[in-house]
Amino acid sequence: MIRLRLYTTLGCHLCEQLEALLATLCDAPHRLERVEISDDDALVERYGVRIPVLVDEAGQELDRGMQPERLAAWLAERGWLNEMAWQALQRQLSGEMVSETARGEAKGAALRGGRRYLG
């Protein structure tokens, strides 16, 4: 079983995205240790604007792992990528991009109060 550490903070929706992607794309049994950065000034200084940051047992860090391509590449480097799940996710993401482009919407955009927010 591989052990991973996730530097996070309470209510981090990007961290939740990374965890969901990790559950989908990681082909190896793993244990995820969540480290709350707000409890430690040094961790806030190091990771505050970079979270979520995923770290393997060798200390290799991945920031912006909530981006599927980045997480897939990081997992593939270690031999932990579920290739079939990654291909399915790529098909799903490309289908979403096509439909949003056809509607003239940016991916992840939400309309609130007449303003478009990227999300």
Rank of each mutant, 00 (worst) to 15 (best):
R50H: 06
E61V: 02
Q90C: 11
R78K: 06
I37N: 01
L32W: 00
Y47M: 06
D39E: 15
D56H: 03
P29A: 12
E61H: 00
E57K: 05
D27M: 03
D41Q: 07
A28H: 10
E61T: 02
G113L: 00
G119S: 10
V98F: 12
S38G: 07
E36P: 02
R112C: 03
M84R: 15
L4Q: 00
E19D: 14
K107H: 08
S94H: 11
G48F: 00
L10D: 15
A76Y: 10
A109F: 02
R5I: 07
A76N: 08
C26R: 01
R78M: 09
I37T: 00
C15P: 00
D56R: 05
Q90P: 08
R46I: 09
D41I: 10
V44M: 13
L75Q: 00
L32H: 05
L81N: 01
V35T: 05
D63R: 08
K107I: 09
R31F: 01
G108K: 03
V44Y: 01
E96C: 08
R34H: 11
E61D: 05
L81T: 00
Q17I: 12
H13A: 10
N82Q: 15
L118Y: 09
R5A: 14
R31I: 14
L111A: 02
L93P: 01
G119M: 14
W80G: 01
H13C: 09
Q17V: 08
V35G: 04
L71C: 06
E61W: 03
